[in-house]
Simulated scan of single mutants.
Amino acid sequence: MKVRIMGEEYTLRTEASQEHTKAVADHVDKTIKAILNGSATMETQKAAILAALQITDDLFRERMAMEELTADIKQLAADIRPLLPPAKRGEDLGAA
């Protein structure tokens, strides 16, 4: 599939859908353009590196938020489990 980033065409091989691939390319393109708009003299290559850093930072922050949410859900499940009837707790009743 072909995508366009900063006026350049790139041919990509991917198992992702065309819609997904286009959305990713559009996001990269918009991020680079936003960085370039903030600086009249920045080279495109430097803007691309800064965009990669920004996108990676966003990814890491989302991963951390997901890990925190997962931990919160596990703790909530542990807090609720004793309040459930024994048959709904998911415990092995024969082991008691």
Score class of each variant (00 low, 15 high):
27 H>D: 09
27 H>F: 13
27 H>T: 14
28 V>C: 02
28 V>L: 00
28 V>D: 00
28 V>Y: 05
29 D>R: 10
29 D>Q: 11
30 K>F: 10
31 T>K: 15
32 I>Q: 04
32 I>M: 00
32 I>N: 00
32 I>S: 03
33 K>I: 15
33 K>E: 11
34 A>W: 12
34 A>C: 14
34 A>V: 14
35 I>N: 10
35 I>M: 13
35 I>Y: 08
36 L>W: 02
36 L>E: 08
37 N>K: 14
38 G>P: 05
39 S>M: 04
39 S>T: 04
40 A>E: 09
40 A>C: 11
40 A>K: 15
41 T>S: 06
41 T>R: 07
41 T>V: 04
44 T>C: 12
44 T>F: 10
45 Q>P: 00
45 Q>I: 15
45 Q>K: 15
46 K>Y: 06
46 K>C: 05
47 A>R: 05
47 A>Y: 00
48 A>H: 05
49 I>Y: 00
50 L>Y: 03
50 L>R: 01
50 L>A: 09
51 A>W: 06
51 A>H: 08
51 A>G: 04
53 L>S: 04
53 L>Q: 03
53 L>V: 05
55 I>N: 00
55 I>A: 07
56 T>D: 09
57 D>P: 01
58 D>F: 13
58 D>P: 03
58 D>N: 15
58 D>I: 11
58 D>V: 07
58 D>Q: 15
59 L>W: 09
59 L>Q: 14
59 L>V: 12
59 L>G: 01
59 L>M: 15
59 L>I: 12
60 F>H: 09
60 F>G: 02
60 F>V: 10
60 F>N: 10
61 R>W: 07
61 R>H: 11
62 E>F: 11
63 R>D: 00
63 R>T: 05
64 M>D: 09
64 M>C: 09
64 M>H: 08
65 A>W: 06
65 A>Y: 06
66 M>I: 04
67 E>K: 06
67 E>P: 02
67 E>R: 02
68 E>I: 01
68 E>N: 04
69 L>R: 12
69 L>V: 09
70 T>S: 07
70 T>A: 10
70 T>Q: 01
70 T>C: 02
71 A>F: 03
73 I>N: 11
73 I>G: 09
75 Q>Y: 07
75 Q>F: 06
76 L>I: 15
77 A>K: 15
79 D>W: 05
80 I>P: 04
80 I>M: 07
83 L>P: 02
84 L>T: 09
84 L>Y: 07
85 P>I: 13
85 P>N: 12
86 P>K: 07
87 A>N: 11
87 A>M: 12
87 A>G: 05
88 K>A: 08
88 K>L: 01
88 K>F: 07
88 K>S: 05
90 G>N: 03
90 G>I: 01
90 G>F: 02
90 G>T: 01
90 G>L: 05
91 E>T: 14
91 E>I: 15
91 E>C: 14
92 D>R: 00
94 G>D: 05
95 A>S: 04
95 A>N: 01
